[in-house]
């Protein structure tokens, strides 16, 4: 596998769309932090993991072409004829694309930290919380990579792969956003002006938009099993908690749940992907 990894990393280094991806994420980081006037002093934390939904979409765009090229140019044959197994090829592509995505993500994190420090912003959360969130993000990236490689390798065609992955990413992002918005509702809320003046309510009241019981569990399952939902969760949670100034809620940040879902889904997609790829005829 090391031979194939070496070859694929060399190809990645010369792959222009990937460099454009790296530059774009840095520029986005600069735009999000340095070029915006917020009217208040935000925390660096609230920007740190914002690149995750971007990676969900861009992985499909950039890497469907990277792997698709192997099919359209027929270069996958060179790899298989020379004794590399399909399993090796599949795992190699996952490792290369995962590390490429982590690099893009880290570029954004570094950019926002540097830009935040330049603007004399501070970190709101403890290092441990940020580290846990970072690790959860890395697992989310692994899940995004595993699912993207699954689709790209099995679809085989550059354009079809691109359309399928981008469409699916957008769909999952919408589902993730919608699920998160359902979950973010607090169980109790403060009464509004009308309720205070007309009804004389002063204590927090039950929030009608709050989902509890089995419905909440279903939404939680959706958001944790959807890689883009995980990305939304990682990104928005950090932002929401900052806005609410509720440090206690951060302690319940379900990073273990995110990691477990990522590992289970990634493993399943890799096992099924290799099984299907082994049975596929290559032209």
């Amino acid at each position: 596998m090391s031979r194939l990894l070496n070859a694929e990393f060399h190809r990645l280094i010369k792959y222009k769309p990937y460099w454009i991806d790296c530059i774009a994420v840095v520029l986005y980081g600069i735009y999000a932090t340095l070029l915006n006037d917020f009217g208040y002093t935000p925390s660096i934390d609230s920007f740190l993991f914002e690149a995750l939904p971007y990676i969900c979409i861009i992985t499909g765009v950039v890497f469907s072409q990277f792997i698709g090229e192997d099919y359209t140019c027929g270069t996958i044959r060179n790899k298989l004829i020379n004794g590399h197994t399909r399993k090796t090829y599949y795992l190699t592509e996952i490792i290369v694309i995962f590390l490429a995505n982590v690099t893009v993500f880290n570029l954004y994190v570094i950019t926002t930290i540097l830009a935040g420090l330049l603007r004399k912003w501070e970190f709101e959360f403890k290092t441990k919380v940020l580290f846990n969130c970072y690790i959860a993000c890395i697992f989310t990236i692994f899940l995004i990579t595993a699912m993207s490689v699954f689709l790209i390798i099995l679809i085989r065609y550059k354009v079809a792969g691109l359309i399928a992955i981008v469409s699916l990413s957008i769909f999952l992002l919408i589902i993730g956003n919608a699920s998160y918005n359902k979950l973010r509702q607090p169980e109790y809320r403060l009464p509004n002006e009308y309720e205070i003046e007309e009804k004389g309510i002063t204590e927090p009241i039950q929030n009608a938009l709050y989902y509890g019981g089995n419905i909440r569990k279903i939404y939680e399952f959706i958001i944790f099993s959807d890689p883009n939902g995980q990305a939304v969760y990682d990104t928005e949670l950090m932002y929401d908690k900052y806005i609410e100034f509720d440090q206690s809620k951060v302690a319940t940040y379900p990073y273990i749940k995110i990691i477990i879902f990522s590992i289970l889904e990634s493993t399943a997609s890799i096992v099924i992907g290799i099984y299907l790829f082994n049975r596929k005829d290559i032209r």
Partner: peptide
């Protein structure tokens, strides 16, 4: 299979690479 080479249907080459880079890539694969 490592003892054989093959050109199946169309030549398997990276179109955005030079001849030399294509060969280098194959050397790495091997």
């Amino acid at each position: 299979r490592r003892r054989m080479g093959a050109v199946v249907e169309t030549p398997s080459i990276y179109l955005d690479m030079t001849a030399k880079d294509n060969l280098k890539q194959q050397y790495r694969i091997l």
